[in-house]
Simulated scan of single mutants.
Amino acid sequence: MKFTSLSFLIFFLVVYILNWSIKGKGRHVFLFVVSVLFYAAWSIPFALHFLAIVVLNHIGNQRVQLNGKSPWFYFVIFLNIANLFVFKYFYFFWDSLLYLTASPIFEPENIRHFLDSQFGFDSITLPLAISFYSFQMIAYAADVRRGDAKENPNFLKFALFIFFFPQLVAGPIVRHGEFFYQLENWKANKQQLFEGLYLVFLGLLKKVVVADNISIVIDPIFYNPNAYDGPSNALALFSFAARAYCDFSGYTDMARGLGKLLGIDLPENFKAPFLSTSLSDAWVRWHMTLASWIRDYIYIPLGGSRVSEIRSYFNLLLTFSLAGIWHGANVTFLLWGFSHGLVLALER
Rank of each mutant, 00 (worst) to 15 (best):
P104F: 02
S308F: 15
D253H: 04
A211I: 05
F30M: 14
G250P: 00
D148M: 08
I214C: 00
L56Y: 05
F87T: 00
N152V: 09
L98E: 07
H28Q: 11
N67V: 13
F32E: 07
L126A: 06
F12N: 09
F320G: 12
A272R: 10
L128S: 04
R256D: 01
S232Q: 07
A234R: 04
S312M: 13
N80G: 03
G147Q: 05
L235F: 09
T289V: 07
A102M: 12
L279C: 12
L261G: 05
V200T: 03
H340D: 07
V210K: 03
K2L: 15
G196V: 01
R285T: 14
S70P: 08
F75H: 11
L128D: 02
F165C: 01
L199I: 00
F11A: 12
D212F: 07
P153G: 09
Y74A: 15
F50N: 01
A149M: 12
D143W: 09
W336E: 11
L13P: 05
R306H: 15
C246W: 02
D116K: 12
D296Y: 08
Y16L: 15
V208P: 03
W72N: 13
D219G: 06
L168C: 05
G68S: 15
I264C: 03
L202H: 02
S131V: 11
D143H: 08
E184G: 13
V55E: 03
L202K: 05
F158S: 02
A345T: 13
P71M: 13
S292M: 03
I111Q: 04
L66I: 13
K157N: 13
Y228I: 04
A149I: 01
I59T: 14
T319S: 14
S239R: 00
P45H: 12
A255K: 07
A323T: 15
A211W: 03
V14H: 10
L334P: 00
A323D: 12
D265N: 11
D265L: 07
N226F: 05
F50Y: 12
Y181W: 09
F85W: 02
I111K: 04
